[in-house]
Amino acid sequence: MTTTLALPATPEGIARAAALLRDGALVAFPTETVYGLGGDARSDMAVARIFDAKGRPRFNPLIVHLPDLAAARSLAVFDARAEALAAAFWPGPLTLVLPLRADAGLSPLVTAGLDTVALRVPAHPVARDLLRAFGGPLAAPSANPSGRISPTRAGHVTDGLAGRIAAVLDGGPCAVGVESTILGLAGEARLLRPGGLPAEALEAALGGPLATGGDAAKPSAPGQLASHYAPRAPVRLQAGAAGPGEVWLGFGPGPTGLNLSPAGDLVEAAANLFHLLRAADELAGDGGIAVAPVPETGLGRAINDRLRRAAAPRP
């Protein structure tokens, strides 16, 4: 078993993390959304290690993280829509799925053999420093066992992956707290996963509504599996109160207990979602988790997407 190093987000810690990545090892690092499990996206071995560490299905593509738009253009074909969205929302919590360049040089494991690639330029300063120090593209799904709750703190990463990865670069809690919004642009603009950038902002930028939906059995981007982000305890949604043996996870005013945002603030709720799901799971024991209704607007769409997948029947 590997000893997982805890690295501080200092110049020395970032340099050590970059050296490990260049050697083909895996390093978890913070983004503004959740912690990612980074590996060299050009290396078959490094990417295979990501799938192995997470227990992730090989047909599920990975997001490639890059330091800037110029690096992204070297991997994918950008049309006018992609250029405009990248200019407006990068760096930030937006992933674009675009046609893969023939000379991109990525491991085919990253794209699950598809002719498209998912790209993101993160905004977190530690992530950006690491990408610049590494000097290449990093494949980085969320740094947790596949299908389980995504990590928003370094301690969440070690809870699930200690001994399976080389290091965790600790940049503190993630500010956004839900994964990036994924927009497919290899054809009509399609919302593949709601996330940290509200879909309304994308629709305003593109001047029209987005198509939605995809094939959960054949995902073209991460986060499309029907059961995902799952705690061990069963989850009951749209609850008015906790039932016998259930832990309450509230939103806005209501029964006492864990609360995503007592003030009903969707930004606060998104930042707290995965941390409080973990806390509820620990408290639930052999019981379940009852979750209050959350509005289906703005970041609420991303929150509800994660909650529905957390509550879905387990494979």
Rank of each mutant, 00 (worst) to 15 (best):
A167T: 06
I63Q: 03
A9V: 05
I182E: 05
Q224G: 04
A18W: 03
C174G: 01
R278C: 02
G163R: 15
T4R: 12
L277K: 00
L266C: 04
A72E: 02
E246T: 07
R309Q: 11
A290F: 02
R148M: 11
T158Q: 11
G13A: 02
D44Q: 05
T33P: 02
P244D: 15
Y35T: 07
I165K: 04
G187M: 11
G36Y: 00
H156V: 08
P145I: 11
P222W: 05
T10D: 15
A279C: 14
Y35L: 09
V97C: 06
L185A: 03
A154Q: 04
A166T: 04
G155E: 14
P234A: 11
A154P: 11
P198M: 10
G160V: 01
A143L: 14
L237G: 05
A279V: 14
G160S: 05
D305K: 13
G214Y: 08
R148S: 11
S74P: 01
L185H: 04
I14K: 05
P219R: 09
S150M: 06
G187Y: 10
A221G: 10
I50L: 07
V77E: 14
A87P: 00
L26M: 03
A15Y: 01
D286F: 00
A186Q: 02
G171A: 10
K54C: 11
A201Y: 09
E268N: 06
L5K: 05
L183K: 04
G240N: 11
A221V: 08
V64R: 10
A48K: 07
S180R: 06
T152R: 00
G177Q: 04
A302L: 15
H228K: 07
R314Y: 02
R232M: 11
P145H: 07
P30D: 08
G113H: 02
A88I: 01
A312D: 03
A154F: 07
P151E: 13
D103P: 00
G36H: 00
P231M: 06
G113I: 01
A72R: 07
D115E: 14
G38F: 02
E200K: 13
A167Q: 01
P122M: 14
G195Q: 03
P173M: 09
D265M: 08
A46C: 10
A139Q: 05
R164L: 14
A280K: 00
P253S: 12
L20W: 01
G163Y: 13
D170K: 12
A269Y: 06
S220E: 12
D170T: 08
E200S: 15
R120C: 03
P108R: 08
E268W: 02
L237N: 10
E268M: 13
E282R: 15
D79S: 05
V168S: 07
P253C: 10
F89R: 05
E282Y: 07
I63S: 00
V97Y: 02
V121K: 01
A19E: 15
A216H: 13
T158L: 15
R42T: 15
T2Q: 14
R278E: 00
L258G: 12
D79H: 08
L237V: 03
P8R: 04
